[in-house]
Design a protein around this nucleic acid. Structure first.
Lengths: 252, 252
DNA sequence: CTTGCAGCCTTACGCGACGTCAGGTTCAAG
DNA sequence: CTTGAACCTGACGTCGCGTAAGGCTGCAAG
């Protein structure tokens, strides 16, 4: 009646693999109480009880080492579960944030061919309408030329455009804001690098036209949500970052 | 003006470690365009552009291999992001489910010293009240004795009790239900093992008293939510599982 | 008793993205 | 030229096993 199990049947019964049971034996998590003369593992009923406890704790997402500690040395279960829950919650939060970013990005990508460019153009047009009335006609004309430049540039960049506009740009934005909130000065080499790369990207679109670059920057400041590809930050935070970047640009 | 960077300053500027840059070089993700005569890495501006692209894509949670493929061979960004989002969403769902289970478990654990035991006792009392009136007094008396047995047992089990009641028990419950919904017959050895272990746990509390064991099983059937430690399943699902377990017990 | 074959054994590499030495070489300042 | 900081390559560890490779055991049939 005191049945013993070999690895194969036990793996079958428990839904695990033989390799897993070998592994658990190797790390001392679950070692069979006895062996045959030839060295074959023999799991007893007591081993099975432990196996079920391991499965239960594993289903909570605990590491094998943690499980071993629990079963062998005894740990306060409340604190154990509490701490583990905190870690899980943290992972969830991180993934949720990532999911939001991916969703936003995917919306932008699938909404149009080059949504980032459209946002750029919209922003440029908005800038034009804010300009002094006396120069409206000229600015409109200039904007048309600028738009043409942007369209040509966009076409020549091809697929890389998506990454640049929808991925790298927001990344630069986030990096800059992180540095700012960490208290880095505008003269910090890391800040300068980020600003430099931003201007590089800008140059890719404007073809080096300073007027257009300035227009894009202004547009960005006026309408951050459409340009950054990320949820619009608080306006005061935003202008603080814009000031920060401008300062970095000046003191370069 | 054509600046070149060594690993140290570049790591400093980018927030990475030297080791990471070495690694990215080793796997061909980001190799410096040149080296000094002595073999020191020299990163050019072009390398920096690639570095920023890598950082951007990495911040989306993509694997280094995927990033390399994107940058070197060009992949449809929409599908890339879409597929990746699906994986992230799946991870979120899994973790959310786990979080819910952990929260429920933690509530149960921190509500009282031995909430599972209280639930057991409550269930036993409920059973008593359902019993035929003619035997009420006797059953009440019997219940008191039973309660005393359970209390003694709980005390002697110590911390392991929590695992048994709040972790292993629900795990057994889930395993049994999984087997049932997979269509396994009540005579399946895996089912028998689960039922056997359930009865072992039951025996731990009742001290082998069949009357108490039966009472606990009945209580469980009457009030599954309080006993299983998991969200109460649909009642029809529940009774189907109870029937399944009873059948497995009979045909053993 | 021997053969056969299924199932068991140990050993070891692989994954992913690096951290962390260890032991030796190169660079730039003084 | 010397010194010390920064650089180099190589290798092992992480975590939970998957996936062989090559050999041994155990049970049944001949």
């Amino acid at each position: 009646m005191h049945s013993s199990w070999k690895v194969g049947p036990l793996a079958q019964a428990s839904g695990l693999t033989v390799r897993t049971l070998h592994h658990w034996d190797a790390i001392g998590l679950l070692s069979p109480s006895s062996r045959t003369a030839g060295g074959h593992r023999e799991y007893t009923e007591g081993d099975l009880a432990r196996l079920y406890q391991i499965l239960a704790l594993r289903s909570l997402g605990l590491s094998l080492e943690t499980i071993a500690t629990c079963l062998d040395s005894g740990v306060d279960p409340v604190r154990l579960i509490h701490d583990h829950l905190a870690k899980v919650q943290e992972s969830v939060d991180v993934l949720q944030t990532l999911r939001t970013r991916l969703t936003t990005l995917l919306d932008a990508l699938s909404a149009g061919r080059t949504p980032g460019t459209d946002a750029l153009l919209d922003a440029l047009r908005a800038i034009g309408s804010v300009a002094p009335q006396a120069e409206d006609a000229l600015k409109d004309h200039l904007a048309d030329e600028q738009i043409e430049v942007l369209r040509t540039r966009s076409a020549s960049l091809g697929p890389a455009l998506h990454y640049l506009l929808e991925v790298e740009w927001p990344e630069l934005y986030r990096r800059a804001d992180r540095l700012r909130t960490e208290g880095a000065p505008a003269t910090d080499p890391r800040v300068r690098r980020v600003v430099g790369r931003m201007d590089e990207l800008s140059a890719l679109f404007t073809g080096g036209d300073q007027a257009i670059s300035q227009g894009v920057r202004t547009a960005w400041r006026e309408n951050p949500g459409a340009m950054s590809g990320t949820p619009a930050p608080a306006s005061d935070e935003w202008s603080a970052l814009a000031d920060f970047l401008d300062e970095a640009r000046r003191t370069r």
